[in-house]
């Protein structure tokens, strides 16, 4: 771990200014990922700007949406009455992530910004274009059983590890950011990037920008929802594959649907084509199977992750079944 400066501003503007003028600075909130990365030498920030004193923890009902402050903690958000009533899919996804201890430290903003768990990214003695552009992708010809089947490039095949983000992309959330050039709103699906030729950039945030909140529009997905996460133990592990499913049912007919996957791409993977398959059809396993088939179009496996081509659709089916039965 390198030596670094540490500041703790209490005003949002001061925090943004501090970051904007220092390319080697970084925000720290819960620190559950950043500190690990610094201890391993993956990230060597010269300055940490602790934003925990900024007033960004509120969860509030707005006209037509639910607004969750960027510093609201994952654990409390998952148990919040408003969230449970209006966005139960988000609560499920949050509860599926990490451990109780980590959820009580990790923030909503930080959760979106967590880095990939690709082991080549974590080991400074191995090649990784995301950590050190130009060194190559260790996973491409390596042990890639946890890696992407959608949207990868020959520079990077890592996956995004967040559970929460899978629910948020399904729920059409918006990320609110504030920066040196003012405030802007980023649709959740545009927040994370595909690796392309610049895998070092995980998101479309610009230098100096601070996530202040996420907004989730009200929608009729308060009952038939399921975040189904398949992992190698019952709790406290990253997803092999996960699926977020939300259904609006009229009797047994699907009026509208939202579907996304985790553990399959460099970003939370929204499945709009598969959603279209569901709409107007009966909520049966056969319908879910058709949607899953469409969802998997274009998927491609590497040496060690071919199982995801089967686990992917099965997880979607399981999530939809669970959602329909909820």
């Amino acid at each position: 771990m390198n030596q670094f400066q540490y500041v703790r501003p209490t005003k949002q503007k001061a925090a943004i200014d501090a970051l904007a003028k220092d390319a080697n600075a970084q925000f720290i909130a819960g620190g559950t990922n950043l500190l690990d990365l610094m201890k391993r030498g993956v990230i060597a920030s010269q300055k940490l700007i602790d934003i925990n004193r900024l007033p960004l923890t509120k969860i509030e009902s707005q006209n037509g949406s639910l607004r969750i402050g960027a510093l609201a903690l994952n654990g409390p958000v998952a148990e919040d009455r408003l969230v449970l009533e209006r966005q139960p899919l988000l609560a499920q996804a949050l509860s599926a992530g990490a451990s109780a201890q980590l959820r009580n430290m990790a923030t909503v903003g930080g959760n979106m910004l967590q880095r990939t768990r690709c082991p080549y990214f974590y080991d400074t003695a191995m090649p990784c274009n995301k950590r050190e552009p130009g060194t190559g992708c260790g996973a491409l010809e390596g042990i890639n059983r946890m890696h992407a089947i959608f949207g990868f490039s020959d520079k990077c095949i890592a996956v995004h590890p967040s559970d929460m983000s899978v629910a948020l992309v399904a729920l059409d959330a918006t990320v609110l950011v504030s920066g040196p050039k003012g405030d802007r709103r980023i649709p959740f699906n545009d927040f994370h990037r595909l690796p392309g030729d610049t895998p070092q950039k995980d998101t479309n945030l610009e230098q100096g920008e601070l996530i202040t909140a996420v907004e989730i529009p009200d929608a009729p997905f308060t009952k038939h929802v399921s975040y189904y996460k398949v992992r190698e133990r019952a709790s406290y592990a990253f997803a092999l594959v996960s699926a977020a499913a939300a259904l609006e049912l009229d009797g047994t007919t699907i009026k509208s649907a939202r579907l996304a996957m985790g553990g399959v791409a460099h970003k939370p993977w929204r499945l709009t084509a598969a959603e279209q398959v569901l709409v107007g059809k009966p909520a049966t396993e056969e319908t879910f199977r058709q949607a899953a088939e469409v969802a998997m179009q274009g998927a491609k496996a590497f040496k060690h992750n071919a199982y995801k081509l089967k686990l992917g659709p099965n997880t979607i089916i399981q999530a939809l079944k669970t959602a329909a039965a909820a």
Partner: peptide, 15 residues
């Protein structure tokens, strides 16, 4: 490539 408890899994209570 498994060098921590995130990558090397041991049972948790739920297992």
């Amino acid at each position: 490539i498994t060098k921590d408890f995130a990558d090397y899994h041991v049972p948790v209570h739920a297992d």
